[in-house]
């Protein structure tokens, strides 16, 4: 079996001390393989967003380890962590995703340029990333010239630009209507089917259902898991077709 794209081992995060101590996450073990879309559900305050921050190296765990493509990021220097984030991990948030002063292609090229790629090469790679999800026609538009759904698709293109294979998405469809939200999830699903790995935090079951596997968090613990499904023809065979 190949190395998982993301692996969380015994992950815990505690905020505060003494009386005000809050255990935000407790003993989380999770792996996400290439080609896999994992959804994380749970009520507000259950630790969903904390999990995503830790997985992306934006916050440090109190206990446990985070491995991205086999490299433990928890022990790395800040500089190397930042480099790993730029090269391996992409983020999609509910809003504030794109930089308003940059066009779609410039937004998508940004992580590569920050990592030292030449402007010309970064632009070509970013155009390819937009083309992969069928929005190369939006390349020269600024964020305020695009709909919310188009912006989120650009954000996904940026998250997966170049060699990056891991997308961490926090409520990426939160501000979108149901049809537009679905279009964004189709893109995320398609990128995973093409070999990327993604963690999707959502409170909407309808969106989580696009994932291969759904886990539930409550009070910082994993309480439930739909498990991995290889080929799910189960439903039509049993429940619906009778």
């Amino acid at each position: 079996m190949s190395t998982p794209v993301l692996e969380l081992r015994g992950l815990g995060r505690t905020y505060g001390k003494g009386e005000t101590r809050v255990e935000s996450l407790i003993g989380i073990d999770l792996t996400v393989a290439a080609g896999e879309l994992l959804a994380v559900m749970g009520p507000s305050g259950s630790g969903k967003s904390t999990l995503l921050m830790l997985a992306g190296g934006l916050d440090a765990p109190t206990t446990g380890q985070v491995l991205v493509e086999g490299t433990e990021i928890t022990g790395l220097s800040r500089r190397r962590q930042a480099a790993l984030r730029r090269r391996s991990v992409g983020y999609v948030f509910q809003d504030l995703n794109l930089i308003p002063a940059l066009t779609a292609v410039e937004n998508a090229a940004l992580p590569l340029e920050l990592d030292g790629t030449s402007v010309r090469k970064a632009r070509a790679t970013a155009l390819a990333a937009l083309a992969e999800i069928g929005i190369e026609g939006l390349a020269d538009r600024f964020p305020d010239e695009m709909s919310g759904g188009q912006q989120q698709r650009v954000a996904i293109a940026r998250a997966l630009v170049g060699e990056r294979r891991l997308v961490l998405a926090d409520e990426p469809t939160g501000a979108l209507d149901s049809v537009t939200g679905e279009a964004v999830l189709r893109v995320l699903r398609a990128r995973c089917d093409a070999g990327a790995a993604a963690v999707l935090v959502t409170h909407e079951a309808r969106h989580a259902a696009w994932a291969d596997r759904v886990v539930f968090l409550r009070d910082g613990r994993l309480v439930d898991d739909t498990g991995r499904q290889s080929e799910a023809e189960s439903l039509l065979a049993k429940d619906v077709r009778g």
Binding site: R206, A211, V214, T226, G227, Q229, L236
Partner: peptide
């Protein structure tokens, strides 16, 4: 909930 979610995943696959 896990059961219903698995059904929802199946419906979503059919939709795809």
């Amino acid at each position: 909930r896990a059961h219903t979610l698995r059904m929802l995943q199946d419906y979503t696959r059919l939709k795809m």
